[in-house]
Amino acid sequence: MSSRFEHQDLVLVEANPEQAKITNRNSYMSWGYPVLTIGEYIKREEILANNEFTSENFKVWILISRKSSVNCNSTTLNDTEPEIFSQCETFKRKTLITLSPGQIKEEICYCITALFTPPKYRHKGYATTMMKILDNKLRYEYKATYSYLYSEIGPDFYSRLGWKIFAHKEIRFKVDGKFSATSRNSETIVAINQYNLESIVNKDCEIIKKELMKLNKKSVVILPTKPAFDWLFQKTKFYSKFHSDTDDPRLFGAMILKNGFVNENDNEEMLKGFIMWNHDFKENELLIVRFRSESPYMTRLLLQQAMHEAIKFQLTQIVLWNPDLKLFSISEDINIFNGIVVERTESLPSLAWYADDDDDVDWILNEKYIWV
């Protein structure tokens, strides 16, 4: 990627707290309106920015004039605040990479999100300039192994700048308010809540590491972590009060065990499968953020739990990203749950590889839990 940028008089700097508020005001009409007031939206962003997941891993970036950058250390809003031509955010994430069969290594990657250019500065090359500068920062200054993002503007813009599009299928299940599980089963199904979430996530990570070590091709996976799930669940609370008369969601999913309990002393083999969800009250959907199953039979049991949760909160659709279709009986399970497999046209997963010249890498577990 070229190191020469279209706007030589511009620099990309980390926003101070007051400048971060300006970026939130800039993007409010696109991402907060009309469900939240501008005050509620800014408050939401402040709370999320101080969550455990974001406190040390989150940065807001602004593209500004080089001349005005001398004022960016200011912590108060004043008449010399720089004009923001484009803006975005990054989250630092832990990733595992296969070096060879049986050998994996933990590295750092970055998620790029919330790319926004104020309307009066659009179609002038500012977003392109910002992404080129940011790409160089992450690659050389922050020593990232790769960066990833989810494009809401199609595949072309980010592909031109070096981000490779990856698989982006999803299954959409229409929620049937009259649904009931008719088949009995002998499995032990336990709810996932705040008390057992961390234990399940830790066990999942151990299983992921073992699975990754069996792969022959260079592959990457972003590890699920409890703070990341907490961040997603906390974001949901801002919209729940506008959607339903019921209480805030208390369940985060369901798991199938080989016995009736789970604790820190159990090994991961006792966790047969699970489904984790997040309630998107803004889009009226139940989003499956993490899914593990051993068979179509187990898939059916887990989806039954998701269907009941969606009905409880009057959600109209269940969405699962990049499913392993071998775990679904296409002619039976998906039809029973009114599901269809589609290619996503939004939130297209894209990855820019920095580690070496060979960017032929598989992106494993590209599920909703790594989206921010």
Rank of each mutant, 00 (worst) to 15 (best):
T145L: 12
I97L: 11
Y110K: 00
D79W: 01
E56Q: 14
C72K: 01
V70I: 05
I38M: 15
D156K: 07
P155K: 07
D79Y: 02
T95I: 13
T117Y: 08
L96I: 14
G102V: 03
R139E: 14
D135H: 12
L149Y: 04
I104T: 10
E89S: 05
S69T: 05
L48I: 10
Y110D: 04
L63M: 10
I64W: 00
I84N: 00
E83I: 07
L115A: 14
L77H: 02
Y126E: 11
G102N: 09
P119D: 10
Q103L: 12
S159R: 15
R93A: 04
E81I: 08
A114P: 10
T113A: 13
E56N: 13
V70Y: 01
K120A: 15
T75V: 02
T80G: 02
C109M: 07
I62N: 04
L138A: 05
E89I: 04
F53K: 06
S69C: 02
N71M: 01
P34H: 09
Y140D: 13
S151G: 05
K105D: 08
R44S: 11
A49G: 12
S74Q: 02
S68A: 06
T113S: 14
E56W: 09
T75K: 00
L134F: 05
L77R: 05
S65H: 02
K124H: 12
T128N: 12
S74F: 00
D156T: 14
L36Q: 10
H123C: 13
L99T: 11
Q87T: 10
Y121E: 14
N57P: 01
N57D: 10
F157E: 07
I104S: 08
D156L: 07
S74P: 00
Y126L: 13
P118L: 15
I38Q: 15
N73Q: 02
T117A: 14
Y121T: 09
Q87R: 01
Q103E: 14
Y126P: 11
A127S: 15
C109F: 04
I42F: 08
Y150T: 09
N57H: 06
I47K: 05
C111V: 02
E152N: 11
K105M: 09
A127H: 12
V35K: 10
P101V: 10
N78C: 06
N136W: 03
E40K: 11
E152V: 05
K143N: 14
T76P: 00
S65R: 04
I97E: 09
S86Y: 02
V35W: 13
L149R: 03
S74V: 01
E89R: 05
F157D: 06
V70S: 03
K43C: 13
A114D: 15
E56R: 11
L96H: 12
T128F: 03
F157R: 06
A144T: 07
D156F: 06
P101Y: 03
E46F: 01
I62C: 06
P119K: 14
F53L: 06
T113D: 09
E107W: 01
F58I: 03
L48F: 06
G154Q: 07
R160H: 15
P118C: 11
Q103S: 06
G39S: 15
F91V: 08
D79P: 01
N50K: 08
N136S: 13
Y140I: 13
E107D: 07
L48D: 07
Y142L: 14
Y158L: 10
A49S: 15
T113Q: 05
D135V: 05
E152Y: 06
F53T: 08
S86F: 00
T95S: 12
F91G: 03
S100C: 10
D156M: 04
R44D: 07
